[in-house]
Amino acid sequence: MKIPTTSKKELLELYNKMLLIRRFEEKAGQLYGMGHIGGFCHLYIGQEAVVVGIESIKKTGDQNITSYRDHGHMLACGMDPKMVMAELTGRSTGYSKGKGGSMHMFSKSEGFYGGHGIVGAQVPIGAGIAFANKYKNNGNVCFTYFGEGAANQGQVYETFNMASLWSLPVVFVIENNQYAMGTSIVRASSTEEMFARGVAFNIPGKAVNGMDVLEVSKEASNAAEHCRSGKGPFILEMKTYRYRGHSMSDPAKYRTREEVQKIREEKDPIDTLRSLLIEKYKISEKEFKTIDGEIKAIVTESSDFALNSPEPNIEELWTDIYAD
């Protein structure tokens, strides 16, 4: 397995991926504002280090599964930004042919099992994918992401019990961004220590600074190692923060602007890595500008591709209801 290192090349890769997610999400927000994206659209801005850190230590064949806040996970696992944007805009060239939309996208070839709109539902499904890994003895781990709000759903604990009982290779990644819609963690949870939620089931857990991509990748690597060695599941509580509203339509009255601003200024995962790159590898302003330009071009290409793609053919209404 790959131990996370901090070579210049690797750090720049992490930086690029986080920046791509941020710029892509900003673009998605803009396209939503213009009416090209409809329904619900949950942006991942602020949380980029979590998925980018974890993806950096994934082994070929490992899977991931998450909630509706899924665009970042798709980009991080190597899915094509063009096809992601096309799905967001409901076009035939999208990952689900325009039938799934923002909350429901999948790529079996990249091991991405969605994209789930029902809070908590992906947790037992993720354990099921891990069950199949064990059944097939393929040495793979399933990273199962869910929010701290979802962590109160009953099926999460039914899953913890089975995952531990059967030593399933699943890493439960709780993305604790402090809020579930307008409800802060203290208003919905009897205990705030998400990493300790597995104690009763004998599942070890760890709280991680989810705004630091290097810490994320180190802890994810340890957790995956634990799973692969047959010791069963592991819980990672990623302490993170979402900058934007829950979805595009959000009254934003449950927290102060100062709270958001403070985290953006002091803890931003991209700025933090940027400072490290400057300090450690003396990356110049000009080099960063070049990266910015490259990322912008990818994002622009994705939205052009999406907006120039046709809507699905009307016959698609009746396809894919059943497998052949």
Binding site: G38, E87, G90, G98, K99, G101, E311, P312, I314, L317
Partner: peptide, 16 residues
Amino acid sequence: GKDVPMPYAENLEKAA
């Protein structure tokens, strides 16, 4: 409604 899960795309949603 049509005998299909609700699609996301605008034109398909209308048809459903």
